[in-house]
Amino acid sequence: MKPLAPQPPKSDPRWSGHTDGAIYECYDPLVAAVGGIPITYRWAATPPAGPAAPPDPRVLAQSAIAQMRLKAVSIGIVPEPVAGRIGIIGMPTWMWVQDPGPSTLGPITRTASAGGFSVTAVAKADRIVWQMGDGSVVTCRGAGTPYADSFGRQPSPDCGHTYTRQGAYTVRATSHWTVDWSGMGLSGTIPLNFTQTTTITMGEAQVLSQ
C-alpha cells in the first residue's frame, strides 16, 4: 500500500466526502496471480498498516508433517527377540513390520494453514533398510510377510536374511520416507527416516540339541 501520487482532487468519489487523510493505492499479488484486477484505492485518515507477510510454505509443510505423528516401525522378526529364543544359523530369518499403518508406512496426508494460506503434505515410506548386525544390509520395499509356523524352513518371499555365524546380533530397521508438499504456488520434497532396533540370538543346531 502506498499513497496515491498525485492525490486526486477532493471532488473525486474515492474521497467519499472526506477532506482529511489521503487516498492509498493497494496492490494484491494474489489477485494478480489469478488474473484479477490487483489494484484498488481506499481512503484512510492515517497511513494504514500493510498486510502481514505470508507464512513460509516450508514452515507450513513442517507443521503438516508434525500432525502426521510419523514413527519408526515395530520390528517383527524370527527368531523372536526374547530371552531363551535362539535361531539356527543357515535357517531363514524373516523380517516384517508388526504395526503397518499410516504413521509407520503411509501414505498419509495432512494440511496446515496460517493467515489464509495452506500447504498440503503427502508422506509415504519408500523402503525399510534392515541392518542385520553381521555386516549385511537388506532393503525391503514393503511391510514384509509375518512368519507363521506353517511356513517351516521356507525363506521370506519379500524380506528375509540368512545368518552364517552364531552370536547375538543387533538388528536396525530404518524406514525411509518421502514427503511431497505443495501450496502457495510452490512445492518441495522433504526426506525423513526413523529407526527401531532389537537384538536376536543365533546358534548352531548341534549346540541347541545338546
Rank of each mutant, 00 (worst) to 15 (best):
I89M: 06
I89D: 01
G90W: 14
G90R: 14
P92R: 11
T93R: 06
W94F: 12
W94V: 01
W94A: 10
W94R: 03
W96F: 09
Q98N: 15
Q98F: 00
D99Q: 10
P100G: 08
G101T: 00
P102R: 11
S103N: 10
T104R: 07
T104D: 11
L105T: 03
P107N: 13
P107H: 14
P107V: 06
I108S: 12
R110T: 10
T111S: 00
T111K: 06
T111N: 05
A112F: 04
A112T: 14
S113W: 03
S113Y: 01
S113R: 00
A114F: 09
G115P: 01
F117C: 00
S118C: 03
V119I: 02
V119Y: 10
T120W: 08
V122R: 04
K124F: 05
A125L: 01
D126M: 05
D126E: 12
R127G: 06
I128R: 02
I128N: 05
I128F: 03
I128D: 08
W130Y: 07
W130L: 07
W130V: 02
M132P: 10
M132H: 12
G133W: 00
S136F: 08
T139W: 03
R141K: 14
G142A: 10
G142C: 06
G144A: 02
G144T: 02
T145H: 05
T145M: 03
P146D: 09
D149L: 09
F151G: 14
F151P: 05
F151C: 13
F151E: 09
G152V: 09
Q154A: 12
Q154R: 06
P155N: 03
P155T: 00
S156A: 15
S156Q: 08
S156V: 00
S156F: 11
P157E: 05
P157D: 15
D158A: 10
D158V: 00
C159P: 15
G160Q: 05
Y163C: 07
Y163P: 10
T164R: 14
T164D: 07
T164M: 14
R165Q: 14
R165K: 12
Q166T: 07
Q166N: 12
A168G: 11
Y169N: 08
Y169T: 06
V171K: 04
V171S: 15
R172L: 06
R172W: 03
A173Y: 01
T174M: 02
S175E: 06
S175H: 09
S175G: 12
H176M: 03
H176R: 08
H176A: 02
H176P: 13
W177D: 08
T178Q: 15
T178L: 15
D180P: 07
D180Y: 09
W181K: 06
G183Y: 01
M184T: 04
G185D: 13
L186W: 08
L186C: 03
S187I: 13
S187P: 07
S187Y: 04
G188T: 13
I190V: 05
I190F: 12
L192A: 10
L192M: 12
L192R: 12
N193P: 09
F194P: 15
F194I: 14
T195D: 10
T195I: 13
Q196T: 11
